[in-house]
Computed example of a mutant assay.
Amino acid sequence: MISEVLIVASPGRAPRIECLGGVAGRRTEADTVHLVSAAATPLGGDTMRFRVVVEAGAVLRVRSAAATMAMPGTVTMESRAHWDLEVDGLLDLDPQPTIVAGAARHVTSTRLTLGDQGRVRVRERVQIGRSNERQGFWSGSVHADTDGGPLLRHRVELGAGSVTDDELGAPRACVSELRYPEATFEAKGTTLELAAGGCLATWQGDRLL
């Protein structure tokens, strides 16, 4: 299944939302949109595409009603999620965690373009496995640019077969949070100030708190 969501935030009006497939968007406050599942997705073979546009002077908060559960399919184990973010206003993107269940493989990619007045907070939380499951795999990448040039190139892998996989003690959970233009904030894990402005905080462990 291919699911597509488009959210466009303009100043002084309600966000415009267009949806196709297994994910829908619902406006829950004047500047807040919640993503909800309209069908069981992502299963192996599924692709979810999200495009978020925040125009200059607009504010948008994107949340999800529940965790995303990536499940293996009957033909393939791998599902994908793509986020395309165009931000000239203020975007706060903080969905519920992604849980990679069973032997599923889930790959996410985020491409962020910030305009001159763009401000952003993007948080991603991932857990490999439900109770007593450790065989799933997740890979996530972030490609962020400002009008002045590159901001961040970042990629993380977790789970079975990842570069961090180790029999003695491999992380199975991750939290990444990108903020711009803030140079620092209070966060668990490690916070890295970026050369072009903004900062990235990362944490890894066995289970999400």
Rank of each mutant, 00 (worst) to 15 (best):
A65S: 11
G102M: 01
A56W: 05
A81L: 11
A70S: 11
G102Q: 08
R125K: 12
E124P: 06
V100Y: 00
V100H: 00
L90G: 08
D46A: 03
T68Q: 11
V122Y: 07
T110Y: 04
L90T: 15
S79G: 10
L91Q: 10
L85V: 13
R111L: 07
V53Q: 15
S64W: 08
L85D: 03
V100L: 05
A81Q: 15
P95I: 02
R80M: 05
A70D: 02
V100I: 13
T113C: 10
R49D: 15
I128L: 10
P97M: 07
Q96T: 08
V75T: 14
R105S: 09
H82I: 15
T76M: 02
G115D: 06
A39K: 07
L85S: 11
A101E: 07
G45H: 02
G73L: 01
L85K: 10
L93Q: 13
L90R: 12
H106I: 00
S79W: 01
V87G: 05
D92A: 13
L93V: 14
T98S: 04
W83M: 07
Q117G: 13
D46P: 01
N132P: 04
A101V: 14
E78A: 15
A104K: 03
F50D: 03
H106T: 00
A56K: 09
A66D: 10
A70V: 01
R119Q: 15
A56V: 12
T76Q: 08
S109A: 11
T74S: 03
V53R: 15
P97D: 08
R119E: 11
A56N: 10
A103I: 14
R105D: 00
H82Y: 14
M69Q: 07
V87L: 09
L112R: 06
G73C: 04
A40W: 00
R51P: 13
P72H: 01
E86W: 04
T108A: 15
A101K: 10
R80Y: 05
L85M: 10
R119P: 10
E78Q: 13
R51E: 14
G45S: 06
A58H: 06
D46V: 01
P95V: 01
T68Y: 02
D88M: 05
R49M: 10
E55W: 07
S131W: 12
V107R: 05
T47I: 03
T47G: 01
W83Q: 08
N132S: 12
V120E: 05
R121C: 09
H82W: 08
G45R: 02
P72D: 01
R130K: 15
Q127H: 12
T113R: 07
S109G: 08
N132A: 11
A103V: 12
A103G: 09
L91W: 12
R121A: 12
M48H: 09
A104H: 03
G129M: 03
V122N: 11
P97W: 09
L112W: 10
I99M: 13
H106A: 01
R61I: 09
V54I: 11
Q117W: 07
I128A: 02
A56R: 12
M71I: 02
Q127M: 14
D116I: 13
T113L: 04
T113S: 12
V126M: 04
N132I: 06
T98M: 07
L93D: 09
T68L: 06
T113F: 05
D84Q: 11
A66P: 06
A39R: 13
L85C: 06
R111N: 05
R49L: 10
A101Y: 13
V52I: 15
G118C: 02
R80I: 03
V126G: 00
V75I: 08
R125A: 15
R119K: 11
A66S: 13
